[in-house]
Every structure is written in structure tokens, then in C-alpha cells.
Amino acid sequence: MTTPLLELRDLSVTYPGTAAHGLFEKPPVFKALDGINLTVMAREALGLIGESGSGKTTLGRAIMGLVPASTGQMTLNGQPITAVHGAARLPFARAVQLVFQVPYASLHPRQTIGQTLMEPLKIHGSIPPADMPARVNALLERVGLTPNFARRYPQHFSGGQRQRIAIARAIANDPALLIADEPVSALDVSVQAQILNLLADLRRDQGLAMLFISHDLSVVHHLCDRIAVMYLGRIVEIAPTGAMVSRPAHPYTAALMSAARRLHAKPGAPVPVILSGDVPSHAAIPPGCAFHTRCWLYQKKGRPARCHSEKPALSVLPDGRQSACFFPGEAQTPALPMASV
């Protein structure tokens, strides 16, 4: 079996909580990520979806080394990167790059586009300084802009153009993996498609692997080979895109799919599953399966004790998909709506 490009084993990230506690007591722990197991193969596009607070952004930042992992292992091309810091991390930093959500905040307002694009080249000393201006021009053209952008400042550009610049900066040193955290959610629909096509081109032409973090199912569905679904810091389902969309294995995924199928919903289409209640807070993650408080399948099955006492592990189903539910396969039947709104 080939070595995965990126492998996460039992990765957890915790923060000290802010809830009230005694002066000499340890502060309560806030679990942002809880036992994440995930692989990204070379050239693969893996989608990571989840609602706010699910931990998807923290996962991206943990891989980048921007937040420390509390337990677990991360390897890049088989080499451990979990506890590598400082200068020793540079080669890994070069191989994994991040594109942020808001292109208005992620570009330095007082640096020209040329300076912004040259910075990663300088840090990694990847090419001789004399070749840098030509490289900047090539990068700009690669993302669909023209070389005359190099002398201008971010304020002159629209959101879509800025996101192109941010992507050019991320690919400056030919990374193996691009982590894109909601790269199109701040953009208008007509401009979104331009950026999604650019990302698809980069994948095809440069063999980039991608971890695409988004709350928008249709966008992830369009771009990714596989999708991982997160809920309250855990992965609840991993499956190839087509299989997940047509036959979700986890009841939470089924509810997400149902909420997302709104455009062109025809009369007579299955009634959408509407989850009751809010996503619980990280300070009070429900015992057992964290999703059971909102789960329609749990209600339908007559509230089995297992769901609220035992944590379901992410396990492999007969068809190769992974789901963290005690009732694999039962989420696929068209579900009845939850009554309470």
C-alpha cells in the first residue's frame, strides 16, 4: 500500500475552557478535536464539511502547525510532523500551504502583490533572487491574472481577484498539499465558480492534493473525491463523494444532504429532515454519541441506551465507507421530518 501524503492518527486538540472553576482546580478542558483519524493521498481532493464549531477549521490549522496537537500523530509522506517546530518545520511548511476564507484580511495591505508573492520564495530560498520577478509574473498568469498586477496593492482588487492572489501565494513553492479553508464562501456566486475552476485546474495540472474545508455541500461535492463530515470535533462519516451524496451512512450526513437539496426541489420530493435544537456547546459535549441529542434516527429507534452511553467509533462498513453510528446503513431510508421546529 502506498504511503498516504498526509496521515492523522488519533489527533486531538484541546484548549483550556473558560467555564467557571475553582482557584486551585484545573480549568475545564475544551475539546476542539477529539481522536481524528484521516488520510489524504497524493493528488487527492478531500472535502471536510461541518457546521460552525465542528472543528473543521481547527483541523486545518493543526495540520499547518498553527495550533498544537495535544495527543496523536501527524505524518507527511510517512515522516512525523506533530512535534516539529521552528526551522526544522520549514520543509513541511513548504509542502503544505493554506488559503484562507477572507481574502480581504489575508493579504498585507501595505505590500504590493509582487512583494506578497515574493515572500514565500525568499523564506524558502527556492529560486535565485534574480529569477523571482519572472516567477511572480508566471504565478500571476497561472491564476488568471496579468503581470501588471505585481506593482499594485490589494485594495485595488475585487474579492475574486484577491483570492486568486492568495492562491498564487500558496502555490509559489509548488506545495504537495493545499489546505483551502472556505476559500469561496466570501465570494459572490458568479465569482465563486471562477475560483472553483481555478482550483480544479491546479489539481489537474500540478497534481496538487487538496484538503477543502467548507460548509457548502454542493461546492465540496463538485470539487472533491472523498468527503469527511465533522460534528463537534469528531469525524462522523468518510465516504467517496458520489456514495455519500446518494446514500449517506450517518444520520447527521443524511440531515445535511437533506438541508442542502433545496435548489430545484420538485414537488413530491422527500420531506427534508429538519434537526431539532442547536449544536451543543463544546463545554458540554453530550455523553455517548455527541449527535444523539439532535438525532432523528435515535428518536426513531426509541432512544437506544447505547447512543447516549457509548461513543461510536468510526468503523469501516462492508462497502469501504466509514461511519460512526451504531446503526450503519439505516440512515439511508428517506427519513420522516422531526416535528418540532
Binding site: 455541500l217 461546492v219 430545484h264
Partner: peptide
């Protein structure tokens, strides 16, 4: 046309 849909890839 610009918006991806779940029904078709």
C-alpha cells in the same frame, strides 16, 4: 449555471 448542484456532477 455557475452554482454547483448535488444532483449532477
Amino acid at each position: 449555471a455557475a452554482h454547483p448542484v448535488l444532483e449532477t456532477r
